[in-house]
């Protein structure tokens, strides 16, 4: 699949990467239909965010269609159109249950 890959400060290009696979019982694979470019993406692009490594895939504001899910995922179904919040979260702790997931980062 096509990915936008970081190769170093101000160096990004479209590379082919292996198709992702379902690995966890809460996983879903989303086929991205559109994505936005955020000011925070420029922090990554400039290489000023600690931990950025060449080879990492960029992008965090996107929408798409559910392509594949763990068989027991019930909240979404294959074919659903979904919009992805940028917050990285576990989905189970108290802040997540109160829909304030940025606290869990």
């Amino acid at each position: 699949m096509k990915s936008l890959v970081y190769h170093g400060p101000r160096g990004v290009q479209i590379d082919d990467k292996p198709h992702p696979s379902i690995q966890h019982q809460e996983d879903a694979i989303i086929r991205i239909t559109s994505t936005a470019l955020c000011g925070s993406d420029l922090h990554l692009y400039h290489g000023t965010v600690p931990g950025m490594q060449p080879g990492q895939t960029l992008g965090h504001e996107f929408m798409g269609v559910v392509d594949e899910i763990w068989p027991e995922v019930h909240e979404v179904q294959v074919g659903d159109k979904v919009l992805i919040p940028f917050n990285i979260c576990c989905g189970h702790c108290s802040p997540c249950m109160h829909k304030r997931p940025m606290v869990t980062m």
Binding site: I14, T33, S34, A36, L37, H46
Partner: peptide, 28 residues
């Protein structure tokens, strides 16, 4: 989406050359 590297460059240089670049969006 294939033009994403160009979009990054435009968004990054918005202060100098691309004065009208406010938010960029890519589509597959």
């Amino acid at each position: 989406l294939i033009e994403a590297p160009k979009a990054y460059s435009m968004f990054d240089k918005k202060r100098r050359r691309y004065k009208n670049c406010i938010q960029t969006m890519s589509r597959m």
